[in-house]
Design a protein around this nucleic acid. Structure first.
Lengths: 328, 328
DNA sequence: CTGAAAGCGCTTACAG
DNA sequence: CTGAAAGCGCTTACAG
């Protein structure tokens, strides 16, 4: 069986209490005693039983991460960043993938919260009121969603989306299309809004399509809708949809960047590798993940600190899928 | 505070023992008693404390899943399948992403094993001997790797790779290239071997490049190597590399499927959506995930059952990236 | 600085 | 079928 505190205590001729302190609160113990305990612990190959520790301490040292879809390239960088950052600080991450089933999100979050000390919920698909309630029950940090009274890390698409519209305008596009993301997506509202504002300010005509699921297939479908209209430039809710547009446009024998300019959002690895390479709005997912963990751990330590808000900026990365407007 | 067994016991005027049994071993209790306990539990909103349960039962109801890289499209289907299947059976999954750092794999698996009842390790990057040792310490099921004495779910690439070579031969290709995956990858050995065998049997000349990391960028690099040689058809270790080849070939102004035929492995969603669509060897990731969970749970229940082996088959899916050989 | 004791919330032989 | 008791392995006031 596994080595326990009792084993070390017996060997060191000390009480379990002292051994426990030597291991988890070294400053409350005589240095010499500590050394002896540590030596024996090492010799015996002691590894603390986390379950037992959890039961008495009330802490699990686990944080939960809820994501809409791990297969969506927007999330892996966030997931990796959360895991890496958590690991550095001695925490483990429990991931829940809701597979884009919005109705599963809240139940899953509620279940998992019983196992963890706090939650990071990325791009939640649930209504703000119910998310707010959840945040009452446990330390929660939302990524990419503002919930009144709750703590969140927001990626402000405004700058990047505005730059995208300005970029198209500068290339001579007068009518542009926006391909909406999922119906109840807060990110989509934010992105759409920024596009609308900038288009209006610059006097561009804006056409909208969707909502679309963030999948390549959606873009294939959307491409035909766009090509049936007047728009010469299109901004998609995300890179996946944009990649679908690219594929379909090429398939129809038209040239991306010439016949139709396409912009995505996320700046995912694929965007740099697509053909042609995809102009995209860079979204700092890694930074968001790191910040979310730091914020959450602070919240776990001090549950009564007020709601915090961190905002990260986005920025357009110009590649080959956008070019000067040409006659259709 | 949260409702405990003691609260229910007090309210029902029963002992904690009986309440515990009513909840977790209903057949060991008087049906009427059980009903009463369940009603009160529901009324009070009782949710069992899993940490406490774990400590006394010795079970965590968690299984660990170690994957090389969640951003690699091969793994999300496996991850989702594992999570879904585990959830159905009342288990939660703890995911560890090693981010392709082979050296981190074993330490991570060892750490996480302390928190779970068993492990699924997908496409391990560690040496067989050390994996075998790990399997002595805890119930482990490997996906895509045979370890002597251990249990595994193998996706046999043989059939699919053979079909891929036959497909190219049937299209008239006489010299083909194979792009190797990671150096110590067991999957790569298996795939390469099948390609070599079939090429030899059919009298084709086989050129090899690599090893390459399973990333789009690798394929971009590999494409130039292939185009500098005689091969007219290329089989990549996976879809990501194949997609990189596609992009680079197009970028160089050549036509995929005409100037160069390209085949990937994984049949990931992108392969159906790439332009042109990618001929690929379908790998049953979802099935592998489901089977791995079932196998692991059986192993957890009966640690002494001998090592099991399940083999799943692969199959070529022909799309547009392969065509009859043309003059170079 | 150290020890004895109680407790975290549940499970599970052992009696009755 | 039910209850009292011990135990899972650790933490943490409380004394000394």
């Amino acid at each position: 069986m596994a080595v326990t505190l009792a084993d070390i205590a017996a060997r060191a001729d000390l009480s379990e209490s002292t051994v426990s302190r030597a291991l988890s609160a070294p400053d409350k113990v005589n240095p010499a005693t500590r050394e002896r305990v540590l030596a024996i612990a090492k010799e015996l190959g002691y590894v603390p039983n986390r379950v037992a520790r959890s039961l008495s301490s009330g802490r699990t040292d686990l944080i939960g991460l809820v994501v809409p879809d791990i297969a969506n390239p927007f999330f892996p960088p966030i997931i990796k960043a959360v895991q890496a950052r958590a690991a550095i600080k001695g925490w483990t991450v429990l991931i829940a993938d809701i597979d884009e089933r919005a109705a599963d999100e809240l139940p899953l979050a509620r279940t998992i919260r019983r196992r963890v000390d706090g939650l990071v919920i990325a791009s939640p698909r649930t209504g703000a009121d119910r998310l707010g309630e959840l945040a009452q029950l446990a330390p929660v940090v939302f990524i990419n969603r503002e919930i009144p009274g709750s703590t969140s890390v927001i990626i402000d698409a405004g700058d990047g989306m505005g730059q995208a519209v300005e970029h198209l305008a500068a290339l001579g596009h007068r009518t542009i299309a926006y391909l909406n993301g999922p119906r109840r997506s807060w990110s989509n509202e934010q992105r759409r809004h920024a596009v609308e504002q900038t288009a209006e300010r610059l006097g561009l005509t804006l056409v909208q399509h969707g909502p679309f699921e963030p999948q390549v297939q959606s873009g294939v479908h959307a491409a035909d809708l766009v090509l049936a209209g007047e728009a010469t430039g299109v901004i998609a809710y995300d890179d996946l949809i944009a990649l679908g547009v690219l594929a379909r446009v090429a398939e129809r024998g038209l040239r991306v960047g010439t016949d139709l300019s396409v912009i995505g959002v996320d700046d995912s690895p694929m965007s740099a590798m697509a053909y042609p390479t995809l102009t995209s709005v860079h979204v700092p997912g890694t930074e968001a993940g790191v910040t979310a963990v730091d914020t959450l751990l602070a919240l776990i330590d001090e549950p009564d600190s007020g709601p915090g808000h961190v905002t990260l900026e986005t920025q357009l990365v110009v590649r080959s899928s956008t070019g000067p407007v040409a006659a259709r």
